[in-house]
Design a protein around this nucleic acid. Sequence first.
DNA 1: ATGGCTACGATCCGTAGA
Length: 258
Amino acid sequence: MKLATWNVNSLKVRLPHVLDWLKAQQPDVLCLQETKLEDHNFPRAEIEAAGYHAAFAGQKTYNGVAILTARPATPFVSAIPNFDDTQQRLLAVVMDRVLVVCAYFPNGESVGSDKYQYKLRWIGALTDWLGDELTRQPRIVLAGDFNIAPDERDVHDPQLWQGQILFSEPERDAFARLVALGFKDSFRLFQQPEKVFTWWDYRMMAFRRNMGLRIDHILLSSPLADLCMSCTVDKAPRKLERPSDHAPVIAELKPTVR
DNA sequence: ATGGCTACGATCCGTAGA
């Protein structure tokens, strides 16, 4: 089972890239973030023509998540249960008896800001919910744009980013608490090259200089982590004309019992 | 080195992203 996540920064603009990528990679599951589309504008026909089923929860201009699946999936939730949120940032479906959770974590703007407080509360609510869900569902994938670089290895220049948004201690602690529920960061299950990132600023030629962060992740509950064979970042779409500022992350699992 | 992108929805600039 091939699982992937990609912040596309507007599905309207990036649809050609997504369709090409589906054809080339043929994932079983692709979680999308920042679709920036109201549901009535979701390109369902194009996705279905590519051979995929789509679940989506969007809004105008900002946020928005979707899960594309090669086989039919059962809707689960389209928001964090028991958390008041006007922003469309979470979607979960069940496919092959795996709970697939697609998440677009808040950016947080700057440490100490209102948006930062919201980010930490949002992660807290997600952690509470998934802790609860893990008591019932052994097989959970949490994939998405976490907007957190968990480790110094995940930042091109840790000194520069020290204490900054995306890398501050409270954010990294929140990430660690989420993982401590019983998840594995699939990327760190394997030996990896140095300086692998998933996001590069559009400015300052950051991509060409590999000035990036690893902030997009695929977390796997223990039974799924045991099946994981690889986790990689596909930089190819970031090199295209008018790219998203994020690259897709792919985790490959041995076949699960359907 | 954060100024310098990019997308969006409103105009011809502001908000947001990360």
